[in-house]
Computed example of a mutant assay.
Amino acid sequence: MIYLDNNATTRIDPRVLDTMMPFLTDNFANAASTHPFGVSASNAVKTARQQMADLIHCDPHELVFTSGATEAINLALKGVAEVYGQTKKHIVTVQTEHKAVLDVCVYLEKRGYEVTYLPVQPTRNAGAGLLDLALVKEAIRPDTLLVSVMWANNETGVIQPIREIAQLAHDTGALFMTDATQAVGKLPIDVDKDGIDLLTFSAHKFYGPKGVGGLYVRQHNLAGSSIRKVKLEAVLHGGGHERGLRSGTLNVPGIVGMGKAAELAPIADRQEIQRLTSLRDQLESELLQIPGTSVNGDREQRLYNTTNICFENCDSDALIMGLEGIAVSNGSACTAASIDPSHVLLAMGLSETEAFSCLRFSLGRFSTEADVIATINAVKGVVEELRALV
């Protein structure tokens, strides 16, 4: 199997698994228990919390562990709505956000909130997939509670100018949240310098286990700035775990694994980043030699491991089926069962036919040049076969 679907999920790093194993076997205690076994588990959680905090440059007590990014997004959006919604009922987000954000916004609209869904630059324009900062500024109002913008898009890899958008939000007194699921572990993040109030992440996107993630919630005022501590109402109740914000027995093995994955994150490994960039560019340049192909999204402001390519007159499902032994995708894994075209690509101006003709290739730590060469040859062959049928 050649695996080029790392934005859907990454393979767990063997070093992460080794760190987890004791907490799946001998050290199985509940981290909330007060006996020595429980204290040992609690100490392991504290270590992981520090490792995760070091990755995004926050205080450990500002992290709330969850089952993943979707739960964290629900807690963030619904939690701030409960606290601040009496006076502010306007939210600004983006048409290309993950469904975890968009679906919660629809839920809040049914409860009296107004949501502005900002467009992005069309795919054939310079800055494709990027927000127009002038539109962001125009959309934020005195009654805007929150601006929520995905850091890096899961389908195209496009990276938004988060620091600038956060500043626009804070200038008007709004909170700023980012779904950083695709950014954590891949890009340098400093929540103070970047002006982040709320940030979500999931371990399985950066070589950790599935079923664990978290939410950063600002718990300190930023000196010399209007950025203040964020209040949040819990969504899950029953025991008061995680400072009362997320009740439930902690997933100790998962949290420990996520901490180790954070410690191993390649954000400072220039050699690894250059390797993946080179492999991505090699894959992309060869595939773009196929007539009737184009890249979706800005080719500069994007993740170094991701390319999304449109193949004219080729159904993406047929492409995927033809690529036997090669794992790629035609959109978000969370909407893979949907028969609708990618909402991200439609928002970027592609027609439904074009959106149904795109593949996302996302490389990772275990990708090799041999994988890339084999994929290039396979894709060229399948595209030729499919077009011969038209």
Rank of each mutant, 00 (worst) to 15 (best):
N221P: 00
N221S: 05
G224I: 04
S226V: 14
I227H: 00
K231F: 09
L232A: 03
A234K: 14
V235Y: 02
L236M: 03
H237D: 10
G238N: 04
G239P: 06
G240W: 03
G240V: 01
G240Q: 04
E242P: 02
G244D: 14
G244H: 10
R246I: 00
R246K: 05
S247P: 02
G248H: 09
L250K: 01
L250T: 06
N251P: 05
P253F: 11
P253K: 15
G254I: 01
V256D: 13
V256R: 01
V256I: 13
V256T: 07
G259K: 08
G259F: 13
K260F: 04
A261K: 10
A262S: 14
A262P: 02
E263M: 08
R270V: 12
I273N: 03
R275D: 09
R275Y: 11
L276Q: 14
T277L: 09
T277P: 00
S278A: 09
L279M: 13
L279H: 08
D281W: 03
E284V: 11
E284L: 14
S285V: 04
S285I: 10
E286G: 05
L287N: 06
L288W: 12
L288G: 04
Q289D: 14
P291V: 10
S294Q: 09
V295S: 01
V295F: 13
V295M: 07
N296F: 12
N296Y: 12
D298A: 11
E300M: 07
Q301A: 06
R302H: 12
T306M: 10
T306I: 13
T307Q: 08
T307A: 05
N308F: 11
N308L: 05
I309A: 04
I309K: 01
C310K: 09
C310I: 14
C310Q: 15
C310W: 13
C310R: 15
C310V: 07
N313M: 08
C314R: 03
D315N: 12
D315G: 01
D315M: 00
D315V: 02
D317Y: 04
A318G: 08
A318K: 11
A318Q: 12
